[in-house]
Structures are given as C-alpha cells and as structure tokens.
Computed example of a mutant assay.
Amino acid sequence: MISDTETLIKRFDSPCARFSLADEMFVERGTKEDWDLLHNLHYKAEKLPIGPRFWRLDLRGNTIGVLVTGTPKGMLRERHIVFPKLKPGAGETRLTNTNRYNFINANFRVISRFVVDTMYRGIGAGYRMMNLVSRMEGNTFMEIQSSMSKFNAFGQKAGFKFVKPMNANNYDKVMKFFRLHFASSPQDFEAIIQEIEAKRGGERAKIEELCKDFYFRNSAMENTSNGGAGMERRRETMGTREVVKGIQQIGLSSPMYGIWKCPDPKGSVPDKLPLLAFDTQKPGERLKWHG
C-alpha cells in the first residue's frame, strides 16, 4: 500500500543496457591459432578434446572469444538419464556397442572449451555464441559438462537443459584416499600441498608416490590418452601439485550435464553469423536470421 506522501513512478519505455560493439561481432570457424591466442585464460589451458573443432568470435578482425567442440564420450551416466535407450544393458554385443558409438558420433558434439576475452565478458556474448555454434556445428545434439554452470547461467540462457548435479564416480574412493593419508579437508588443495611439503626425506617421497599411484590407477583420461612408455613419461614429468589437483578432479568435481537439440535442418545454417542473430528467435526455435 502506498501512502499519500509517496509517489509510484513506472516507466514502460525505460531504456535497456546495450553494448553497441555487439553489432560488429561475428561467430565463424576458427583454427587452433585462435585458441592459442586466448587459451591461457582457460583453467584447462594446455589440453584439448579428441577431434577438436574451433570457432571464433570476431570483432574487427580480432579474436575475442574461442569455443572448442569435441567428440563426445561414448559412455556418460548423465546422458543415460536423458537418453535411457543409449544405456548399455544385458546381452550387449560388439555389434550393438559399435552401433551405439556410431550413433553418438554422428548425432552428438560436446562443448569442451570456451573462453571470452576479459574485456568482453558480461555483455551476453558467451551464451549467444554458444547457441549459434551449436547450430553451426550441424549435429542434432550438443552437450556440455561444466562446473561453472552451477554458478553462471550462460548455458541455461543458451537454451541448454541440465541434469541435476551428481557426485563423480570416484567420489567415495577419492574421499577415502585423502582421509587415510591427510589431516586436511579433501577439498582444501593448498592445505594438502602444505602437508606434503612439511614431510621430509623418504616420508615425503613415499606420499608423493602414493598420490601418483592412486591418480594413474583411477584417472580414465590418463589411461585413455597415455599408455606404455607414454604413461611412464607422463608420470615422471608430473609435479606434486598437478597430481593432487588431478586426484581432486577425478573425485570431487561435479560438472553439470546439459543438452541442447538443434531445431535447424542439417546444412541450413551458414558458417558465419552475426552474434546478434541469436536475438531473432528463442534459443530452441529455428533460426530466423537471413543475411
């Protein structure tokens, strides 16, 4: 209730904030050189997915954003929640497994790396680019697994639907390992490192070796990407900080799984679009922009 001494003012024509340079931003195919320009801004700077494809956000000839898509994982429990028929069951054969992988590779891509120059964050470039790239890739489904989606709704704004976060498969195993060998909280990276550095001589060497043994025994990525002499070289060159961080990632990370279905017929979306083409339709509607 408004008193006689108060005035309520409504503006139906109030202006909306708008970043004028967005008119000059374009999403188009890129190269690894574009990724190299901005990759240090990404927390997984040195690693790329299997089968990477690069997309860039261009402003007057400069790369101000890079999105990298990759080949999806063959087995993913969050995907099985959304697509239960893709979940392996009893009586699986080599043929059925091969057909499943062929179907996934033909119809799915995954957003693996995404970074926007710090000068152009907070203007809506991220979710717009994510949606447009998902259309331009030409696959039926685009997936994303992102821990940041719990804190930033860019995926939701791009039209992705998310599954409730789940603990990692190795959660219990990693928690048991940390609690067995460290007094610090399993989530406290620096405290664990300090415990290791406080040890001396053979005791420190022993705990570092235990960490490496545990990491390489349980890391699906290491066991898939490296083998034989390659794994031995990888093991020798990994520092303690990287190993501890790796253990935390395989057990304590809980990225949200999102899925987006493309409404555009395959081959109908061009390889270059203005960023604001996103605004011509809802995120899940067929592209209405015509250049």
Score class of each variant (00 low, 15 high):
Gly70Phe: 10
Gly70Pro: 00
Gly70Ser: 05
Thr71Val: 13
Thr71Arg: 13
Thr71Ile: 13
Lys73Arg: 09
Gly74His: 12
Met75Asp: 14
Glu78Val: 07
Arg79Gly: 03
Arg79Pro: 02
Pro84Arg: 11
Pro84Glu: 10
Pro84Tyr: 10
Lys85Ser: 11
Leu86Ala: 05
Leu86Val: 09
Pro88Val: 07
Pro88Gln: 07
Pro88Leu: 06
Gly89Gln: 03
Gly89Leu: 02
Gly91Ala: 06
Glu92His: 01
Glu92Leu: 02
Glu92Tyr: 02
Thr93Glu: 03
Thr93Gly: 00
Thr93Val: 02
Thr93Leu: 01
Arg94Val: 14
Leu95Pro: 01
Leu95Trp: 10
Thr96Asn: 05
Asn97Ser: 09
Asn97Thr: 12
Asn97Trp: 09
Thr98Pro: 00
Thr98Asn: 06
Thr98Phe: 04
Arg100Asp: 15
Tyr101Asn: 15
Tyr101Thr: 13
Asn102Thr: 15
Phe103Ile: 02
Phe103Gly: 02
Phe103Val: 02
Phe103Cys: 03
Ala106Lys: 15
Asn107Glu: 15
Asn107Arg: 15
Asn107Val: 13
Phe108Gly: 05
Phe108His: 10
Val110Asp: 03
Val110Gly: 00
Ile111Arg: 01
Ser112Met: 04
Phe114Arg: 01
Phe114Ser: 06
Val115Pro: 01
Asp117Thr: 11
Asp117Asn: 11
Thr118Val: 12
Thr118Lys: 10
Met119Glu: 15
Met119Ala: 14
Gly122Trp: 09
Gly122Val: 14
Ile123Ser: 11
Ile123Gly: 07
Gly124Lys: 12
Gly124Ala: 15
Tyr127Trp: 15
Tyr127Ala: 06
Met129Leu: 15
Met130Glu: 15
Asn131Cys: 13
Val133Tyr: 03
Ser134Tyr: 06
Ser134Gly: 10
Ser134Cys: 12
Arg135Ile: 06
Met136Lys: 03
Met136Leu: 08
Glu137Asp: 06
Asn139Met: 10
Thr140Asn: 01
Thr140Lys: 09
Met142Val: 09
Met142Leu: 05
Glu143Tyr: 01
Glu143Trp: 01
Glu143Leu: 06
Ile144Phe: 00
Gln145Ser: 02
Gln145Asp: 03
Met148Thr: 04
Ser149Cys: 04
Ser149Gln: 08
Lys150Arg: 11
Lys150Cys: 05
Asn152Trp: 09
Asn152Met: 05
Phe154Ala: 09
Phe154Gly: 00
Gln156Pro: 00
Lys157Trp: 06
Lys157Ser: 07
Lys157Glu: 07
Ala158Thr: 07
Ala158Met: 10
Lys161Thr: 10
Phe162Arg: 04
Phe162Tyr: 13
Val163Lys: 06
Val163Phe: 12
Lys164Trp: 07
Pro165Met: 11
Met166Gly: 02
Asn167Val: 11
Asn167Gly: 01
Ala168Tyr: 08
Ala168Val: 08
Ala168Gly: 07
Asn169Asp: 12
Asn169Glu: 14
Asn170Met: 10
Tyr171Ile: 04
Asp172Ser: 04
Val174Met: 00
Val174Asp: 00
Val174Ala: 00
Met175Tyr: 08
Lys176Ile: 03
Lys176Cys: 02
Lys176Pro: 00
Lys176Val: 03
Phe177His: 02
Phe177Ala: 02
Phe178Gln: 01
Arg179Gln: 13
Leu180Met: 09
His181Gln: 10
Phe182Tyr: 10
